[in-house]
């Protein structure tokens, strides 16, 4: 459903991504791994329209979406849950979720809210609370919940386990598995290599703006040289 070919993107005079080829099939969990600064976040920003690609094509569900505005890409069904959560701290949990459905019609809103509250009961308990007062783990749940409110076909999760306690990391990966079990494709961009490879069916390893390894997650997990060279294990 997502088909990236020869993607080049960057900031100012520098190309951060130097030719990325990447695919995500419907219902699949794909991990994108790599150390800090290899271009993972830039890849997400180019896919979600926050920056315009300099070259290459991004096709999503058959449409060329490269260079479109973020709002149009959200409408198309590709939703990026960013690193650092980027929730609206001054607004209630409910209003944060409601804004996630900004591109969708109001009729489905209540159903989607119920679905999110069923998935994250903590958010229901705190629906009237200001989002900025939530704990880190709850804020991450809210960020994912807000993404799901937009009825994505593919959701990009950027470092969902970052800054969470080990117990919460475990819980987060369980939740991602549950989300994917509903038929949603997930692109998981993580530094938590071991758990991401356990969850994903396929993985890409990024290094210096290029993809240096791609294949079934089990194969990448079983390649000690690869893990040692690029993933710090």
């Amino acid at each position: 459903m997502l088909e990236v070919r020869g993607l080049i993107a960057g900031y100012g005079g520098t190309d951060v991504l130097r030719g990325i080829d990447l695919d995500v099939a419907p219902g699949e969990i794909v991990a994108v791994l790599g150390a800090n600064g290899v271009g993972k976040t830039t890849l997400n920003r180019a896919l979600s329209g926050l920056i315009a690609p300099r070259a290459g094509t991004i096709r999503f569900l058959g449409e060329a979406i490269g260079g479109r505005k973020p709002a149009a890409i959200v409408s198309a069904g590709l939703i990026h849950v960013p690193e650092g959560r980027r929730i609206f701290p001054n607004m209630s949990v409910r209003d944060n979720l409601v804004l996630g459905s900004y591109r969708r019609g109001k009729p489905a809103r209540q159903n989607n809210l119920e679905r999110i509250f069923a998935l994250f009961p903590r958010l229901r308990e705190r629906s009237a609370q200001a989002a900025g007062t939530l704990s880190g783990g709850e804020q991450q749940m809210l960020a994912i919940g807000r993404g799901l409110m937009g009825e994505p076909r593919l959701i990009i999760l950027d470092e969902p386990s970052l800054g969470l306690s080990p117990l919460l990391v475990e819980e987060m990966f369980t939740l991602i598995a549950r989300i994917a079990a509903d038929g949603l494709a997930v692109m998981l961009v993580e530094q938590n290599v071991v758990q991401s490879l356990e969850l994903a069916s396929r993985a890409y390893v990024l290094e210096n703006g290029r993809i240096v390894a791609a294949g079934p997650a089990a194969e990448i997990a079983a390649d000690p040289a690869l893990k040692h060279a690029y993933l710090g294990l």
């Binding site: 960013p82 980027r86 701290p89």
Partner: peptide, 10 residues
């Protein structure tokens, strides 16, 4: 409050 978050929410 959160321009990037807003853009990513559509």
């Amino acid at each position: 409050k959160e321009k990037t978050g807003a853009a990513l929410a559509g």
